[in-house]
């Protein structure tokens, strides 16, 4: 059914994945291939590289070039209040429970450039929990963590983000959270007071704390089932009893090994709670 050209491309990608792991310690073997192929093709088109051998040579020789490759292959596209109903549900069903703890710990896993993080921080602020919450924001990619820490986003996104904020139950003026300047908006740095940024690779790194809530949205879709299982086990291990897990709109615990240890809090918004 498939032609030789496709087969060769796929073999070369496997060799590239092995070489990158040996050279840089980033393991992409658990990434869903269809998406990896597409990201690699896209990157090669942008860089005008004729084939995988040329790509491999450039990636292994030049660590700065590799950074760009890493950025492209690990999708970093995100937005504020993506699926506002998810954030509304957090506000209504999860945060009231978290408020019973004297100190709250939250892990935003795969926080990318921080849009989701700021959405969460605004919710915490409005529910009066920000001051006693520590948020651990992690990503595989150091460059996006730096951008998240800066909290600067293009002004053209404001209309969509403002609509998302109100749809997520926003209680104030959205504009009170940021200042506008030079075609961009910068979120108030006071929001970040209790945020810790760490590089963390879900594919290879271990549990590093215990959390009352873990949010990991639209990250696991890029992983194979096997790697997903591993990450779910990592989340299970990293949650306190009765801790919450929030996934992306199309991600589900239904088929995961840990599903028997979790109850569904909000089916359509993919919010779960650890019960065992």
């Amino acid at each position: 059914m498939k032609d030789d050209q496709e087969d060769l491309f796929e073999q070369e990608v496997e060799a590239l994945i092995t070489a990158i792991n040996a050279h840089y310690g980033y393991d992409f073997s658990g990434y869903a291939r269809a998406s990896v192929y597409r990201r690699i093709r896209r990157f090669m088109d942008n860089k005008r590289l004729p084939g995988i051998p040329e790509l491999q040579q450039a990636v292994l020789r030049d660590s700065y070039f590799f950074e760009g490759f890493l950025q492209e292959v690990t999708v970093n596209v995100t937005e504020m209040f993506r699926d506002p109903s998810f954030f509304l549900s957090l506000r209504q069903h999860v945060l009231p429970r978290l408020s019973t703890y004297p100190h709250i710990k939250i892990w935003d896993a795969g926080c990318s450039t921080g849009e989701e993080l700021f959405s969460l921080l605004i919710l915490l602020e409005e529910e009066g929990l920000l001051k006693r919450t520590k948020v651990y924001a992690t990503d595989i990619n150091q460059k996006v963590l730096k951008e998240a820490r800066e909290g600067i986003y293009p002004a053209r996104s404001i209309a969509a983000y403002t609509a998302g904020y109100y749809a997520a139950g926003g209680k104030r003026e959205f504009s009170s959270y940021y200042t506008s300047n030079y075609g961009g908006i910068k979120f108030n740095s006071s929001l970040l007071k209790n945020v810790l940024f760490y590089p963390h690779n879900l594919a290879t790194d271990f549990s590093f704390n215990e959390f009352h809530l873990i949010i990991c949205r639209n990250v696991l879709i890029y992983f194979t089932r096997e790697l997903q299982e591993k990450v779910y086990a990592l989340f299970d291990e990293s949650l306190v009893p009765l801790g919450y897990l929030g996934l992306g709109k199309k991600e589900t615990l239904t088929l995961a090994g840990i599903s028997k240890d979790f109850e569904v809090i909000d089916k359509s918004n993919r919010i779960y709670r650890k019960i065992r």
């Binding site: 291939r33 269809a34 990201r39 596209v77 879709i221 709109k249």
Partner: peptide
């Protein structure tokens, strides 16, 4: 296709979703 995701097909005929550009 779900709104807001790209849909890709894997070799084993499973669907991969993708929320990239």
């Amino acid at each position: 296709a779900p709104p807001n995701y790209h849909v890709l097909l894997e070799k084993d005929l499973s669907f991969s979703l993708d929320s990239s550009e």
